[in-house]
Write a protein that binds this DNA or RNA. Structure first.
Lengths: 121, 121
DNA sequence: AAAACATTTGTATATTTGTTCAAATGTTTA
DNA sequence: TAAACATTTGAACAAATATACAAATGTTTT
């Protein structure tokens, strides 16, 4: 057997077993990794990202949000449901109106960071 | 015409014109909004997020990365290309080997923040 | 030069998903 | 109670995309 190599797993030879082990551990230790991916995925769609940015500093009803986005009310409502479930946006009912806002600091923080990241590219 | 309402745009009545205008402006002012969404989208897929996390603290060749992820080399390579284009990961060639790493501080920062965010939910 | 190997790339396919229309729900007002 | 309105929800369709296999590229070694 060659110097650093280890028995193959999944038919793949391992070159640096130590680093592979570390990587495996890092992934395994992140128990809510699917939830993290889900949050990123929700922000990774222009319509939804725009929704979040639109209601970052002031709340809007679904109707006005659709207007601001120049989009369909139904489309906005569908996307809002996804964002709501992930606790990325919150809402407040007032009669038949529903006002949405995105006051979660975490979310606006990461949007700012990614904004910086893409600017540099 | 009713009190606060304004002429319809896209067949939608506007309730709070001031906030709609602010929202529109906030969206319009973010010139690279599609790039921002793209970065989020790339992190929003479990395979790619795991890749990034795997190589956050130590570099790995494609082969070992595939092993650590228990996945296909081709699949990993395809996803690495996307991550590379978005400057989320970088690589270093050494002969026929290619070592990938994700040392971008921005990226590990936002992953940590989202990790916190999802924990609270 | 050829064999061996790591990685990349092209193609095809199955799955996911964003959007739209239509209908349903729930609230206010006449 | 009925009409008007805001929002939600269901269903269907088109578009995007993650994955796998096969072939191509590029590098090292014999």
């Amino acid at each position: 057997m060659k110097k650093d190599k280890v028995a193959p797993i999944c038919e793949i030879e391992i070159v640096n077993a130590k680093n592979v082990k570390k990587a495996r551990k890092r992934i395994a230790d992140t128990e809510n990794i699917l939830d993290i991916a889900e949050t990123f995925k929700l922000l990774g769609e222009p319509t939804r990202l725009k929704i979040v940015m639109a209601i970052t500093e002031c709340e809007l009803c679904v109707c006005d949000l659709a207007s601001a986005m120049e989009s369909n009310i139904s489309t906005i409502s569908h996307q809002l449901r996804l964002l709501r479930n992930a606790k990325i946006v919150k809402y407040r009912k007032e009669g038949k109106m529903v006002y949405y806002s995105a006051d979660d600091k975490h979310i606006s923080d990461i949007i700012e960071i990614v904004k910086e990241h893409t600017k540099e590219g």
